[in-house]
């Protein structure tokens, strides 16, 4: 606990631009009941003065919804990756250290560039190949059990916590990481999505695919949405193995199919 309850003591990573060197700057902001990391950062915006009493610039960070559904505000708080909006001050050891995610390039201070995650969603074709948006009636029926399984997977907010905690995911490799593998499971488990399961499986078979997973299981421990990421990895591992076998026979099937359809 801090020596003075009336202040929240923060140690925040400052870095003006992607290419400049960073450093820690300390702040003491007035304590308020129910405060979280974001409300302290907002307080610094209103009074950008550091613990030494010197004027400084407001801290830059990414946030939006502040209720843990948009995925913006992931950062390292006291050395642990988590969402800043749900990090309540009363539950944190002080001084509270705030650092940006280390697996992504810093844009400024606590904000990072996670565009690689969105690019990887393209790589694994994380969508349903829709005929069009015109009216074609309801989608396929599926059971409440399948819905419950898919729903949890679909709450992934692309925050990057699983990647930050993953020993295999680095800035200079191509590993897609747990979130993308789990998204493949999500789309393959939809009756229509399953039509393109092979494409997605193949995307996980190449370089940066599922074989890069070292099974450290850190991902599932840090996921703020408690998505069963290791189960997803296990299931997709099996699917990819089956796909490899299928691919061997698919060649023949493909040739046969050529005979049965119209020329």
């Amino acid at each position: 606990m801090s020596t003075n309850d009336r202040f929240v003591h923060l140690k925040i990573w400052r870095q003006e631009s992607p290419t400049q060197a960073g450093y820690f700057e300390e702040f003491k902001v007035p304590y308020k009941k129910g405060a979280n990391v974001i409300s302290c950062l907002m307080e610094i915006q209103r009074n950008p003065v550091n613990a030494q009493g010197q004027k400084t610039t407001p801290v830059n960070w990414d946030s939006n919804c502040l209720e843990e559904v948009c995925g913006s505000c992931a950062m390292n708080i006291n050395g642990r990756v988590r969402m800043a909006c749900s990090a309540l001050i009363d539950k944190l050891e002080q001084p509270i250290t705030l650092e940006p995610l280390k697996k992504f390039p810093v844009t400024r201070d606590l904000a990072v560039d996670r565009n690689r995650m969105f690019e990887d969603l393209k790589k694994v074709k994380a969508w349903i190949a829709l005929d069009g948006t015109h009216n074609l009636g309801p989608g396929p029926r599926y059971s409440p059990k399948v819905q419950a399984e898919r729903y949890v997977l679909s709450t992934c907010m692309t925050c990057g916590c699983c990647l930050e905690a993953c020993p295999q995911y680095t800035r200079d490799n191509d590993f897609v990481g747990a979130f993308a593998i789990s998204q493949v499971r999500l789309f393959n488990s939809h009756p229509t999505g399953a039509f393109n399961a092979a494409d997605r499986n193949h995307a996980l078979m190449g370089e940066g695919g599922i074989q890069d997973c070292g099974k450290a299981q850190n991902c599932v421990r840090v996921c703020p949405k408690e998505i069963p990421l290791t189960t997803s990895i296990m299931r997709m591992n099996r699917a990819v193995t089956v796909q490899t076998v299928k691919d061997l026979f698919m060649k023949d099937e493909g040739e046969e199919a050529g005979h049965s359809g119209p020329a």
Binding site: W127, L130, T133, N135, G137, P138, R141, Q147
Partner: peptide, 18 residues
């Protein structure tokens, strides 16, 4: 229905309907 076709995991009835 369009959103259902896009794969939104809408809650289901026991029969599998929306």
């Amino acid at each position: 229905y369009m959103l259902d076709r896009m794969g939104v995991p809408f809650n289901r009835t026991p029969e599998g309907n929306l």
